[in-house]
Design a binder for these strands. Structure first.
Lengths: 147, 147
DNA sequence: CTTGACCCTGTAGTCACTACAGGGTGTGCA
DNA sequence: TGCACACCCTGTAGTGACTACAGGGTCAAG
């Protein structure tokens, strides 16, 4: 009978902070583990795999709510596969929308950064002037003629 | 003497929620406005411009802390312009790093989505199998041979 | 025995909002 | 005039995904 892992060992094995592990347990994503005589949590392979699953989903920016849904699908192998597809498709759409907005944002920051010349103080700062001009409702280098 | 705007009017003029406006005031980003006899906030052009400035920074994903720093620079025109450049550069770097990770994430989700075949139930779902395989430490289609 | 690293539970904080409770004000309509 | 509704106010709490801390217990080494 192999002794289970304490929480820091599980954390080291998965790269997850002990507080985050306890958080996932409280959030219902990770089942409560057995306890040693001293009250310490004792984790086995099942938890190791579950935690890895969760972290994998998080790495894909899948919310904990959606991660929970995927875990439900695992627990019910007869569930409709289309629902899983939809979940991943929705996530993909979210990521792609966010990507588009980040790309626009990058361009805007590059344009703003381009306002910086050889000045030495805030009074003459192209960046600040640009931000203030935008606040005046003028077209700004960041966003163009959108106003 | 022109009557000031009530909070909803300022909100309508800037597209900012009244609760967010009050939040910014509490957070110290927006100065506390004058009050009407009935205790209602009364905003003028100064607030309109300040709020537009803040929202512009937020649109650039600049944190409230950094927005506060930019406002400080505005209040101190003799401050060193280089510090502003650094702030915007740091923001640009953050956005670019996030952009890179979102792009990788998109690829990973597309790869995962590509696991979906003609199955009808969760038991045979390529997506779930992929996520579970990743949890087993096997190379996954999302991340390749990283493990 | 002491110390320091670990453990535990419960609570609070982070960030940028967003929502709600409970009460006040103003206006239009019956 | 009274009511209903839309607005206002302050203070508090909640969101999501963590992260930190308080106060106390356990363990092992020196």
């Amino acid at each position: 009978m192999k002794t289970g892992m304490r929480i820091s060992e599980l954390g080291a094995a998965t790269g997850v902070d002990t507080e985050t592990i306890r958080y996932y347990e409280k959030a219902g994503l990770l089942p409560a583990p057995a306890r040693s005589a001293n009250g310490y949590r004792s984790y086995g392979d099942v938890h190791l795999e579950r935690l890895a699953f969760i972290r994998h989903c998080r790495a894909l920016d899948i919310s904990l709510a959606d991660t929970r849904r995927l875990l439900d699908f695992l627990a019910h192998p007869e569930a409709d596969c289309g629902d899983i597809d939809q979940l991943i498709d929705a996530q993909l759409a979210r990521v792609q929308a966010r990507l588009a907005s980040m790309q626009a944002l990058e361009q805007q920051l590059l344009a703003l950064r381009g306002q910086c010349g050889e000045h030495r103080c805030a009074r003459d700062c192209g960046i600040l002037q640009e931000l203030v001009a935008a606040a005046h409702g003028e077209a700004c280098a960041c966003h163009g003629s959108r106003t």
